[in-house]
Amino acid sequence: MASETHTGLDSPKGVWWKPAHRTERLWVGIAFAWCLVLFAMMPFWHWKGGQNPSGIRRRVEPAKFFARTQEFIKQYQVGTESGIPVVEPPPGADIYLTALTYQWIPVLRLRKGAEYTLHLSALDVNHGFSLFPLNVNFQVVPGYDYGLRVTPTEAGDFRIICNEFCGIGHHTMVGRVIVLDESGNEVGRSGGAQ
């Protein structure tokens, strides 16, 4: 196998650092350019796009975050549903949503087109925030407050699925978000649109 032309199973003899054929260089060049596009899209979306997972992030004691959620509930509660408090904060408010096995507390009533700062955290273990049917997903980690500026762009009746395994009752963990239209009316389920 002294040949110059050899398979990957043979030891190349002598110096193998040789210029590549132009076809190979062409493909490497195209692939490299594409990699740069892949990369550039992320900063571009921070600049021009409307959906970014940046948020305001800070450490927080799980118990303190839960206490802050209770305070938030007391401030804006308008009812109760399936034993879970329902709150309707004013546009622009800081919203506190606590995940705990196996509930999302509280139920939220938001206004279409208004911006809120949604604080997510967990009281016990990791949970996953998955807004159905929009398919918007965030990790909810105990000990961390994830503050995301959200603007609901459509009215409807939404669900929050827990999509991080959190224990034996994981599949029963569903929360609710109602988005009212601009004039504050509940619209039917626009949900099933997917």
Binding site: G83, N135, E164, G169, H170
Partner: peptide
């Protein structure tokens, strides 16, 4: 469609709120 991974029951039969996938 938003179907979660690592999930036993996406019919959510024991959940507090109903949820129906397409």
């Amino acid at each position: 469609f938003g179907v979660p991974r690592r999930h036993w029951d996406i019919s959510f039969s024991q959940a507090p709120f109903d949820l129906q996938f397409s």
